[in-house]
Each structure stands twice: as C-alpha cells, then as structure tokens.
Design a protein around this nucleic acid. Structure first.
Length: 473
RNA sequence: AGCGGGGUAGAGGAGAGGUACCUCGGGAGGCUCAUAACCUCCAGACCCCGGUUCGAUUCCGGGCCCCGCAACCA
C-alpha cells in the first residue's frame, strides 16, 4: 500500500492586540475541516495556528495596561489558545507563539540566510513624525502630507538607519510563481496580487531601533536592532516544522495557507519573496477569505456590533458554530452576519432540518425495526470542492439530501404504510436510515460530534436526544 | 490618480446566450412519524442607456451607485 502524501495547513497567526475575532475563528474552523477531511482520507496531517506577539502595538498596549510585556502576551495567548477546544479543533493541532524560543531562533536563521544572499541591507529610512501627536506616522495616516489631527503643524522627517529587505529583486520570481493558476485562491485575488507585483516593488524596512521599541526578535549580530514584526511572524509557518534543525521540515513544508484578504500581500508576496531569498520552497497554495461584517458595517467596539466567537459557542454550541461558519460565511466574499440571521440559519437547518429529520427517522427505526440497519462505510464527499475550499457547496449537497429525505417520508408515508404492510414500510425505513448514515458520514469533517451521535444512534437503532436545542425567542 | 470586485423577488445568496434557482419572510392547502416540526401550491426580481445577436438579465461599450486595495497599518 502506498502511503498518502502529508498535508500541512496553517492559519495566519492573529496579532494579539485584542480578543479573538470571529474572522479568525472562521479561518481556524476551515483549516480544521480541511485537516479533518484529509485525515479521514488517510493522509498524515499537520494543522498549525498560534499567535503573533511582537511589535509596537503590543508593546504600547502592555505599557498602557501597566504590565510587563511578556506577562501581557502570556495572558492574551491563553485567550486565543482557549478558542481551539471551544471550536472543536483537532486536539493535535499545533499552537505556536512567536515568543517561543525555538521560533525566535528560526526567525534569526531566516534573517541570516536572507542576509547572506545579500537581500538584507542597511539603509537610511525617512520616518515621518507629528509633533502634535508625538507619534510617528505612516503615509496612509497622513492627509496630503499633514496629520489630520494637527493640520497646522508640519510633519517632521527624521532620518533613521534600518535594515531593508530587497523585495524589489523578487518581482520576476513572484510573477513566475503566479503562473500557477491556483497558487492563490480565489482567482480574483491572484489577479489582484499579480497586478500589485507588476506595478513594481519597493524594498521595505524589516527592523526597528531597539532604543525605540525593544519588543521584537533581536537582529543577529547587531545589538541595536530588533526585527520588524512581519519578518519574524511569517517565519512561523516553517519554524513549527522543526526547521532549521530539520532542513527537510520533517516532510511537512511546503503547505497550504489560509489568510484574510487584508493579508494577501504579506502571505502571497512578502513571505514568498522571503522564502525565495532563503532558497526554501514556496507555499503550495494560499486561500484568501473575505471579511465578516455585521449589520452592513465592519465590526467595531464603538458601533457595538461585534460578535465574538465565544458568544457564538455560548448561544449555539460548538458544533452549530462550526456549521454556521462553514456553510453560511462565504469562503471568498464578504459576509454580513446578524444575530437574527444566525438564529434563522440555526433553526431552519439544524433544529428543523438535520435535528428533526434524525428524530423522525430514528423514531421510526426504533419502533418498527427489530435490528439495527447494516450500513456500509461510504465516503461520497465532493473532494474537488473541498480541495478548492468550497465548504459551502459541499454542505449545500448534504442539505439537499436532507430535504429529499423529508420529501420522501411525506410522499411515501412509511408511518402509515406500516399499519397495513409492515414489510414494505420496513424497507422504506431501512432506506432512510442508510441515507441518514450517508449524511452523517459526509458531516464528519465539519461537525464531528454530531456525526458521531447520529452514527451511534444508527448502530444502536435508537432515537437520540434532540441534536439541536430550539432557541427561545 | 491607479488597480480589483460588485449591483438578481421584502431580506440574504446562486446562476446561465433561449421556461431565472435556493433559504428566510408573506398567502393558501396537506400530513401527523418527528424538536408547533415536515410536504405541496401561489404572489414577488435580473440598476440605466446603447451595441453584438434570430434572441441578453447573461457578451461588449458607456453611465449611475456601492465595496475592497492604495505598501511598511500584523
């Protein structure tokens, strides 16, 4: 028997300057469903996630909170880590923190390799500073070269020495990478990044002066600088495989990456250029998801429309939360979510759909069948769709089957037939149980607990407790 | 500036050169195995203006409107 190819899948590491976002939860659940699916198919699977913990913003937040930075990130990392069991993520999933010692060593090794290649160099960097805010400003924060808050003050330009990454050198190599038409999915994101790279690349700063901000991985052989957070964070995808000690990444890399659309550039251009520079294999594929909005607007604390993953699991439970995120959040486009809509999806499809159908079939089976139905293991999943991250369409197929089964019961009325022709009715019920079995098997990667409950019920020929509790409105 | 995406029933989504589909909601009926669930039927839509075509909502051009990205912001 030939052994199946190893599958590596990773989320982007969320930056821990605030609580876990529903967007990250979605990414995590998708990665998990993908990993579970390949695990079922017999592939060795490595599922990676974790937290990105360096940089100015985190340093500032810790200062604000009056806490030691390490203590501060330790607390936040815990909050993110707790999310995994909450969302039913595979227990063997890897959780990396960019403050882990091994990760920091790997980031430094990455730096050394890029530097040896001549792709990291020192240059003077113009920093724009607003005296009014007493803060450095990026171009996007400025309006016509002025600070929007202090329009009378001129912006002061300060010269600063930084290390730069020779991003511009990789324009052609990146474009060659994008020839692989499914390198970035969906295709319109591939077009977007290609256009960006075609437009020309500028080298960017990859270090910060330690005197200004020491919360970063130290630059090798230079006491005065720490790495800019991107450079260090991106390396996590390979540091978790045991690189650089394991030059072959333990067989896991290259792998599949998930990211939000705000991360398109970092993942599909910057990170790939870093890998090319270090002469390491580039990613296999990058899946770019949309954003989740609420009530037509971005979720924000000031608007009060934030829906946290913990609120979802509190209201619907782990399994239903997975279902909602996988089927009703569009894999590529932005999705608008409100509690009203979530309740609707939950009630219509889980309570009235899957839950009710399971109850009606298993009640008939329990009452009218003498023995459990013999079922065969079938894996009739739409593999192509799953490999393209089309979670929705796979689940649509399952719910289509559920609808057909409800129809079948109404049309054929086994509950009525049983009074005159028991054998005929039993045959119908057996067919239904087999169909239900198939539905449960198709759900294993998406809703593992629910699938297990249904499969057990079929095996015991017993109606289970209600699968989904009706929400009181 | 530029780049990219989009405007389909009351709401949210899918779709295709030729009877426009799904979910929720509205109306009528049916059933009683099931979690007041389930099934059937009905009403209701392709932003505007040109072009290509026997025929476009679908392709092309223009307009109006919306939304991302616009680099060191993870």
């Amino acid at each position: 028997m030939t052994s199946k190819t190893p599958k590596y899948i990773t989320t982007t590491l969320p930056y821990v300057n605030s609580s876990p976002h529903i967007g990250f939860a979605t990414e995590l659940v998708r990665a998990d469903a993908y990993a579970r699916y390949f695990k079922l198919m017999g592939h060795p699977v490595f599922l990676n996630t974790g937290t990105d913990e360096h940089g100015q913003k985190i340093y500032d937040k810790a200062q604000e909170a009056g806490k030691d930075t390490q203590v501060f990130v330790d607390e936040l990392a815990e909050e993110f880590k707790k999310l995994l069991p909450e969302l039913g993520i595979l227990p063997e999933a890897n959780f990396v923190r960019t403050t882990d010692e091994h990760h920091k060593l790997a980031a430094q090794e990455m730096w050394r390799r890029c530097k040896e290649k001549g792709d990291i160099y020192k240059a003077t960097h113009a920093v724009k500073y607003c005296k009014g805010c007493e803060l450095e400003k990026t171009d996007s924060e400025l309006d016509h070269g002025k600070c929007p808050l202090h329009t009378n003050n001129e912006i002061e330009v300060r010269e600063e020495e930084n290390y730069f990454f020779r991003f511009s050198k990789y324009q052609q190599a990146l474009l060659a990478l994008y020839e692989q038409t499914d390198f970035v999915v969906p295709d319109f994101r591939l077009v977007e990044i290609r256009k960006f790279v075609e437009g020309g690349l500028q080298d960017f700063s990859v270090s910060r002066l330690k005197t200004k901000m020491a919360w970063g991985v130290p630059v090798p052989d230079d006491e005065e600088h720490v790495m800019y957070v991107w450079f260090d964070a991106l390396t996590n995808y390979i540091s978790v495989t045991g690189w650089p000690e394991k030059e072959d990444f333990g067989g896991w890399w290259p792998g599949v990456q998930l990211a939000g659309k705000d991360n398109l550039r970092q993942q599909s251009a910057i990170w790939q250029a870093m890998l090319l520079s270090a002469e390491l294999p580039t990613s296999t594929q990058i899946f770019i998801g949309g954003f989740i909005n609420s009530g037509g607007q971005k979720m924000s604390k000031s608007l009060g429309n934030v829906i946290s993953p913990y609120e979802l699991t509190a209201r619907y439970g782990t399994e239903a939360t997975r279902y909602l995120l996988l089927r009703h959040v569009h894999p590529f486009e932005d999705t608008d979510i409100t509690w009203e809509r979530l309740d609707e999806w939950y009630t219509a499809n889980l309570v009235n759909g899957l839950g009710n159908l399971t109850a009606r079939i298993m009640k008939m089976a329990e009452t009218h069948l003498e023995a459990p139905v013999d079922t065969e293991e079938v894996t009739s999943m739409d593999t192509q769709a799953l490999e393209r991250f089309q979670f929705q369409s796979v689940l649509d197929g399952v719910w289509n089957a559920i609808g057909q089964m409800d129809e079948y019961i109404t049309e054929n009325e086994p509950f009525k037939v049983v009074k005159e022709d028991k054998a005929a009715a039993q045959e119908m019920i057996i067919k239904l149980v087999k169909d239900l079995h198939e539905v449960a098997e198709s759900l294993v990667a998406f809703m593992p607990e629910t699938a297990a409950v249904i499969l057990a019920a079929i095996k015991d020929n017993k109606k289970p407790e209600n699968l989904f509790v009706r929400i009181e409105s």
